[in-house]
Protein backbone atom coordinates (compact mmCIF):
# COMPACT_ATOMS: atom_id res chain seq x y z
CA UNK A 1 0.00 0.00 0.00
CA UNK A 2 1.36 3.43 -0.90
CA UNK A 3 1.16 6.06 1.80
CA UNK A 4 1.11 9.65 0.58
CA UNK A 5 3.17 11.89 2.84
CA UNK A 6 2.93 15.66 3.20
CA UNK A 7 6.24 15.79 5.02
CA UNK A 8 8.48 18.66 4.02
CA UNK A 9 12.12 17.72 3.53
CA UNK A 10 14.37 20.67 4.29
CA UNK A 11 17.80 20.98 2.73
CA UNK A 12 20.52 19.54 4.95
CA UNK A 13 23.58 21.66 5.71
CA UNK A 14 22.10 24.83 4.26
CA UNK A 15 21.19 28.28 5.60
CA UNK A 16 20.09 31.26 3.57
CA UNK A 17 20.14 34.95 4.34
CA UNK A 18 17.12 37.12 3.66
CA UNK A 19 17.76 40.84 3.84
CA UNK A 20 16.35 44.19 2.81
CA UNK A 21 14.82 47.39 4.09
CA UNK A 22 11.19 48.21 4.75
CA UNK A 23 9.75 51.69 4.25
CA UNK A 24 6.27 53.15 4.01
CA UNK A 25 4.92 55.22 1.11
CA UNK A 26 6.47 58.36 2.66
CA UNK A 27 9.89 56.63 2.71
CA UNK A 28 9.85 56.35 6.51
CA UNK A 29 11.54 53.16 7.86
CA UNK A 30 9.19 50.60 9.38
CA UNK A 31 10.53 48.84 12.46
CA UNK A 32 9.27 45.64 14.09
CA UNK A 33 7.82 44.32 10.86
CA UNK A 34 7.76 40.53 10.90
CA UNK A 35 9.69 38.69 8.19
CA UNK A 36 8.78 35.04 7.66
CA UNK A 37 10.47 32.61 5.32
CA UNK A 38 7.86 30.06 4.28
CA UNK A 39 7.35 27.09 2.05
CA UNK A 40 4.00 25.95 0.62
CA UNK A 41 2.42 29.25 1.60
CA UNK A 42 -0.19 29.62 -1.16
CA UNK A 43 -1.08 32.82 -2.99
CA UNK A 44 -3.70 34.46 -0.83
CA UNK A 45 -3.41 37.24 1.71
CA UNK A 46 -3.65 34.81 4.61
CA UNK A 47 -1.28 31.87 4.29
CA UNK A 48 -2.80 28.41 3.97
CA UNK A 49 -0.15 26.60 6.02
CA UNK A 50 2.48 27.57 8.51
CA UNK A 51 5.62 25.96 7.15
CA UNK A 52 7.95 28.49 8.71
CA UNK A 53 11.65 28.06 7.94
CA UNK A 54 12.92 31.30 9.46
CA UNK A 55 11.61 34.42 11.16
CA UNK A 56 12.88 37.82 12.20
CA UNK A 57 11.99 41.47 12.60
CA UNK A 58 13.12 44.74 11.06
CA UNK A 59 15.18 47.10 13.19
CA UNK A 60 14.72 50.82 13.83
CA UNK A 61 16.21 51.66 10.41
CA UNK A 62 13.75 49.32 8.74
CA UNK A 63 16.57 46.94 7.87
CA UNK A 64 16.19 43.20 8.30
CA UNK A 65 18.59 40.30 8.06
CA UNK A 66 17.09 36.88 8.72
CA UNK A 67 18.95 33.58 8.75
CA UNK A 68 16.71 30.75 7.65
CA UNK A 69 16.59 27.11 6.78
CA UNK A 70 15.94 26.35 3.12
CA UNK A 71 13.60 24.23 1.08
CA UNK A 72 13.72 23.56 -2.63
CA UNK A 73 10.06 23.96 -3.54
CA UNK A 74 7.91 25.48 -6.27
CA UNK A 75 6.15 27.52 -3.59
CA UNK A 76 8.86 29.36 -1.68
CA UNK A 77 7.87 32.65 -0.06
CA UNK A 78 9.18 35.51 2.03
CA UNK A 79 6.37 37.36 3.77
CA UNK A 80 6.70 40.82 5.29
CA UNK A 81 3.95 41.68 7.71
CA UNK A 82 3.92 45.24 8.99
CA UNK A 83 1.11 44.48 11.43
CA UNK A 84 -2.39 45.94 11.36
CA UNK A 85 -1.12 49.39 10.46
CA UNK A 86 0.57 48.38 7.19
CA UNK A 87 -0.05 46.30 4.12
CA UNK A 88 1.48 42.85 3.67
CA UNK A 89 4.09 42.01 1.04
CA UNK A 90 5.01 38.55 -0.24
CA UNK A 91 7.97 37.63 -2.42
CA UNK A 92 7.53 34.29 -4.14
CA UNK A 93 9.66 32.15 -6.37
CA UNK A 94 10.26 28.56 -7.41
CA UNK A 95 13.40 27.39 -5.62
CA UNK A 96 13.38 24.12 -7.53
CA UNK A 97 14.42 26.20 -10.53
CA UNK A 98 16.22 29.09 -8.88
CA UNK A 99 18.56 29.27 -5.93
CA UNK A 100 20.79 32.33 -5.55
CA UNK A 101 24.43 31.35 -5.94
CA UNK A 102 25.34 33.32 -2.83
CA UNK A 103 22.36 31.86 -0.90
CA UNK A 104 21.15 35.41 -0.26
CA UNK A 105 17.69 36.73 -1.06
CA UNK A 106 18.15 40.49 -1.10
CA UNK A 107 14.75 42.14 -1.43
CA UNK A 108 16.34 45.61 -1.55
CA UNK A 109 13.70 48.14 -0.45
CA UNK A 110 10.18 46.91 0.17
CA UNK A 111 7.50 49.57 0.40
CA UNK A 112 4.50 48.83 2.55
CA UNK A 113 1.44 51.07 2.53
CA UNK A 114 -0.19 52.38 5.65
CA UNK A 115 -3.59 50.83 5.96
CA UNK A 116 -6.90 52.03 7.27
CA UNK A 117 -10.01 50.23 8.41
CA UNK A 118 -13.24 51.12 6.67
CA UNK A 119 -16.23 50.47 8.94
CA UNK A 120 -19.61 50.73 7.28
CA UNK A 121 -23.07 50.67 8.74
CA UNK A 122 -26.11 50.56 6.49
CA UNK A 123 -29.52 51.06 8.12
CA UNK A 124 -32.98 51.03 6.60
CA UNK A 125 -34.96 54.02 7.92
CA UNK A 126 -37.59 54.25 5.16
CA UNK A 127 -39.81 51.42 6.34
CA UNK A 128 -40.59 47.92 5.13
CA UNK A 129 -40.49 46.62 1.55
CA UNK A 130 -37.73 49.03 0.49
CA UNK A 131 -34.63 47.35 -0.90
CA UNK A 132 -31.01 48.31 -1.44
CA UNK A 133 -28.42 46.84 -3.74
CA UNK A 134 -24.92 48.12 -2.99
CA UNK A 135 -21.24 47.46 -3.60
CA UNK A 136 -17.91 48.80 -2.37
CA UNK A 137 -14.97 48.76 -4.77
CA UNK A 138 -11.53 49.20 -3.19
CA UNK A 139 -7.89 48.15 -3.35
CA UNK A 140 -6.84 45.54 -0.81
CA UNK A 141 -3.73 45.90 1.37
CA UNK A 142 -1.86 42.90 -0.01
CA UNK A 143 0.93 42.65 -2.56
CA UNK A 144 2.37 39.39 -3.89
CA UNK A 145 5.23 39.55 -6.36
CA UNK A 146 6.25 36.36 -8.13
CA UNK A 147 9.77 36.20 -9.50
CA UNK A 148 11.23 33.89 -12.14
CA UNK A 149 14.82 34.07 -11.00
CA UNK A 150 15.41 37.78 -10.73
CA UNK A 151 12.64 38.75 -13.20
CA UNK A 152 9.23 39.82 -11.99
CA UNK A 153 6.46 37.65 -13.42
CA UNK A 154 3.53 40.06 -13.61
CA UNK A 155 1.14 37.37 -14.75
CA UNK A 156 1.54 35.44 -11.50
CA UNK A 157 1.80 38.52 -9.29
CA UNK A 158 -1.13 40.24 -7.63
CA UNK A 159 -0.33 43.56 -6.04
CA UNK A 160 -2.92 45.79 -4.39
CA UNK A 161 -5.70 44.30 -6.45
CA UNK A 162 -9.20 45.68 -6.79
CA UNK A 163 -11.87 44.02 -4.70
CA UNK A 164 -15.64 44.36 -4.87
CA UNK A 165 -17.85 43.69 -1.90
CA UNK A 166 -21.62 43.87 -2.33
CA UNK A 167 -24.95 42.72 -1.02
CA UNK A 168 -28.71 42.99 -1.60
CA UNK A 169 -30.74 44.17 1.40
CA UNK A 170 -34.49 43.57 1.75
CA UNK A 171 -37.09 42.72 4.39
CA UNK A 172 -35.26 39.56 5.35
CA UNK A 173 -32.01 41.41 5.88
CA UNK A 174 -32.64 45.18 5.95
CA UNK A 175 -29.50 46.34 7.81
CA UNK A 176 -25.82 45.43 7.70
CA UNK A 177 -22.48 46.44 9.10
CA UNK A 178 -18.99 45.20 8.27
CA UNK A 179 -15.43 46.37 7.85
CA UNK A 180 -12.45 45.87 5.55
CA UNK A 181 -8.88 47.05 5.34
CA UNK A 182 -7.36 49.08 2.52
CA UNK A 183 -4.40 51.41 1.96
CA UNK A 184 -4.74 54.81 3.58
CA UNK A 185 -5.45 57.58 1.05
CA UNK A 186 -7.19 55.28 -1.42
CA UNK A 187 -10.69 55.90 -2.72
CA UNK A 188 -13.62 53.58 -2.06
CA UNK A 189 -16.26 53.57 -4.76
CA UNK A 190 -19.70 53.09 -3.22
CA UNK A 191 -22.40 52.19 -5.74
CA UNK A 192 -26.00 51.62 -4.73
CA UNK A 193 -29.51 51.33 -6.06
CA UNK A 194 -32.65 51.79 -3.97
CA UNK A 195 -35.72 49.83 -5.09
CA UNK A 196 -34.09 48.99 -8.44
CA UNK A 197 -33.83 52.64 -9.41
CA UNK A 198 -30.78 53.80 -11.44
CA UNK A 199 -27.47 53.28 -9.69
CA UNK A 200 -25.83 56.10 -7.76
CA UNK A 201 -22.10 56.30 -7.09
CA UNK A 202 -20.16 57.99 -4.31
CA UNK A 203 -16.39 58.27 -4.04
CA UNK A 204 -15.06 58.13 -0.51
CA UNK A 205 -11.44 59.13 0.15
CA UNK A 206 -10.05 57.27 3.14
CA UNK A 207 -8.13 59.89 5.05
CA UNK A 208 -8.09 58.45 8.57
CA UNK A 209 -6.98 55.20 10.19
CA UNK A 210 -10.50 54.27 11.21
CA UNK A 211 -13.05 55.51 8.73
CA UNK A 212 -16.68 55.16 9.79
CA UNK A 213 -19.28 55.27 7.02
CA UNK A 214 -23.00 55.30 7.68
CA UNK A 215 -25.69 55.08 5.03
CA UNK A 216 -29.42 55.24 5.55
CA UNK A 217 -32.01 54.35 2.95
Amino acid sequence: MTVLSCEVQLEANTRILVEGTIRDQDNVPISEAKISVLTKRGNYSSSENQYILGEGYSNADGHFSVISLYDGDEDFAIEIDGGDAYSTYVYKTNTLEFTPLDLTFNLETVNLKKTATFNYDIVRTSGTSNTLSYSFKYLDGFCLEYYDGSTLNEYQSSCYQEHVLGQFLNDNNPDTEWLFSLPLGEVVTFTYSINDEPEQTEFITINQDNYDFTFNY
Binding site: C6, E7, Q50, Y51, L69
Partner: peptide, 16 residues
Protein backbone atom coordinates in the same frame (compact mmCIF):
# COMPACT_ATOMS: atom_id res chain seq x y z
CA UNK B 1 19.22 16.71 14.25
CA UNK B 2 17.12 19.86 14.44
CA UNK B 3 13.51 19.42 15.53
CA UNK B 4 10.58 21.33 17.01
CA UNK B 5 9.14 23.09 13.97
CA UNK B 6 5.88 24.99 13.84
CA UNK B 7 4.27 22.12 11.96
CA UNK B 8 4.47 18.37 12.32
CA UNK B 9 4.91 18.11 8.55
CA UNK B 10 8.53 19.17 9.03
CA UNK B 11 9.91 16.37 11.17
CA UNK B 12 13.59 17.23 11.26
CA UNK B 13 16.48 18.87 9.48
CA UNK B 14 20.09 17.72 9.62
CA UNK B 15 23.47 19.42 9.66
CA UNK B 16 26.81 17.69 9.92
Amino acid sequence: KNTGFSTADIAEQHDS
